[in-house]
């Protein structure tokens, strides 16, 4: 009757514990003296600016396609005039944050995982540690904070471009003035919509940066582990985003709309 916990479970528990410890180290090091402002700015530039085009194009097309796809159905119900507000609500509340976060998980979490992974393999992180410098502060804190700052900004920008995409799509079938379109879009939205929407992107940003750093920082020896780190960073960051979104939606429906 005495069955031991399967070995894989054991490993999962150890990994989970490891992540909690790593998270503690991260938070402690945010408030250490000698904050790396320059490196934070550099990471914001790398993480934010270099994802602009990918995120921008995705956002625009999201709005464009959503409008094109839903217009015929809405027309059948005679509700064509609700298309702008429907697109605005679905993009800003849900589709924008989640899709952009998933895309950033693919682009940013993987590159952080690969970068720190290869620094680990080539003993650069060890060298930093041994010299008496603080690699967590220099490498991890800056990257995670940069993600926390940049993901919400990228998402807001993508939201705006998605609305522009929706406007473009509406204009293909029949002329609608920009003023009217955006009036209709924003009429359906209230400021309360924006708070949980932006709020959850902060957590998505944390998940992307933290998981990328954790996987890279703790990768094994040997070059193949760099690939493993990058890959598992994307997988678990995506999973975290979906989970966090489910939680955020529940919390929002309890607090904001009741």
């Amino acid at each position: 009757m005495t069955r031991s916990v399967p070995a894989t479970w054991n490993k999962q528990f150890i990994a989970a514990g490891d992540q909690v410890v790593f998270m503690g180290t991260f938070f402690r090091n945010i408030f250490r003296r000698g904050f790396e402002w320059n490196e934070l700015l550099r990471q914001c530039y790398i993480i934010g600016y270099k994802s602009l085009s990918l995120v921008g194009i995705t956002g625009f097309i999201l709005g464009f396609v959503l409008t094109l796809q839903s217009a015929p159905t809405m027309k059948a119900f005679g509700a064509e005039s609700f298309v702008p507000s429907m697109v605005a609500i679905s993009i800003i509340r849900e589709i924008g944050p989640v899709i952009i976060a998933l895309i950033c998980a693919g682009k940013i979490a993987s590159s952080i995982g690969a970068e720190l992974g290869s620094m680990k393999v080539s003993e650069q992180i060890d060298a930093m540690e041994v010299s008496g410098a603080n690699p967590i502060q220099y490498l991890v804190v800056t990257r995670v904070l940069a993600c926390i700052v940049m993901i919400p900004i990228l998402t807001l920008m993508a939201d705006a471009l998605a609305l522009a995409g929706g406007f473009t799509a509406s204009n293909i079938s029949n002329k609608i003035s920009a003023v009217l379109y955006f009036n209709k879009s924003f009429a359906a939205l209230s400021f309360v919509d924006l708070i949980p929407a932006v709020g959850k992107t902060i957590f998505f940003g944390f998940a992307i940066g933290f998981v990328g750093c954790y996987k890279g920082y703790n990768s094994d020896r040997g070059t193949e582990s760099v690939g493993v780190a990058a890959n598992s960073a994307v997988v678990s960051a995506s999973l975290w985003i979906i989970l966090l979104d489910a939680i955020a939606v529940q919390l929002t429906s309890v607090f904001a709309y009741s």
Binding site: E115, M119, S122, E123, Q124, D126, A127, M128, E129, V130, S131, G132, N134
Partner: peptide, 20 residues
């Protein structure tokens, strides 16, 4: 440990230069 490490220099076999 950090204070002790400052007094110790370690040359890695691979050099371990920060390549960024």
């Amino acid at each position: 440990l950090k204070a002790m490490r400052i007094k110790i220099g370690f040359l890695f076999q691979s050099g371990a230069l920060y390549d960024s």
